[in-house]
């Protein structure tokens, strides 16, 4: 039970319960304003009836010709609202907007290779690994999970404009590229 609504600039005043969590980065105001000034329909918020923010997603549309797609830049849910399928609902919105408004071929996102819970969730939603990006997350250094901590999977899900599923592949986990090769 949550309100799904557009992300507004003034939400920056009230996202602390989400952003104080260690896994969520707080960027400069320019970051959010940039997304909102270009892809406001790919940025939305889940809010509790009390008005407290529960989570948000920030996305964009990019790429040329058959690479034209929706990209999830950040998706996050406050600790107390996890396991309520909020991420799923926000992803559904991004997919719908990518498909119907931007007519993108696919939606993609990056996820830490060590984050098996998230990877499984995305797989359950129809995403598959397209490639592995080396050292995508440099900031935390090598943790317990070794390479899996700093490498990312680029996961994709084809949209209706790609009925033949040309934007995905079966052996994505073995396709390794370096962070410089991706945008």
């Amino acid at each position: 039970m949550s309100v799904l609504r557009p992300f507004k600039a003034t939400d920056m005043f009230k996202f602390n319960n989400i952003n104080l969590d260690i896994w969520t980065e707080t960027y400069g105001i320019g970051f959010y304003l940039n997304y909102l000034s270009r892809w406001p329909d790919l940025c939305c918020v889940q809010e509790a009836p009390s008005g407290r923010m529960m989570g948000y997603v920030i996305g964009k549309a990019e790429g040329v010709s058959t690479e034209w797609h929706g990209h999830v830049t950040a998706i996050t849910v406050a600790p107390e609202y996890r396991r309520l399928s909020l991420a799923r609902k926000m992803m559904r919105l991004v997919e719908m907007v990518t498909d119907e408004i931007y007519k993108g071929f696919f939606v993609d996102l990056y996820v830490r290779c060590a984050n098996t819970v998230a990877i499984e969730m995305y797989e359950g939603m129809g995403y598959s690994v397209y490639r592995r990006v080396r050292e995508y997350y440099g900031n935390l250094g090598l943790g317990k999970g070794g390479r899996d901590e700093e490498d990312a999977f680029d996961m994709r899900k084809p949209m209706s404009r790609d009925p033949n599923r040309r934007s995905v592949r079966a052996n994505g986990r073995d396709m390794i590229v370096s962070a410089h090769d991706v945008s």
């Binding site: 600039a9 003034t10 400069g28 105001i29 320019g30 304003l33 909102l36 000034s37 270009r38 406001p40």
Partner: peptide, 29 residues
Amino acid sequence: ISNSQETSDFVVRAFTAEKYSQIPEFIVF
């Protein structure tokens, strides 16, 4: 300081990209 230096740039960008729904919000922000 960031606000007074940057935010108006994004108002301008929103005009360029015709994202009118955002402009009043940016100004309130």
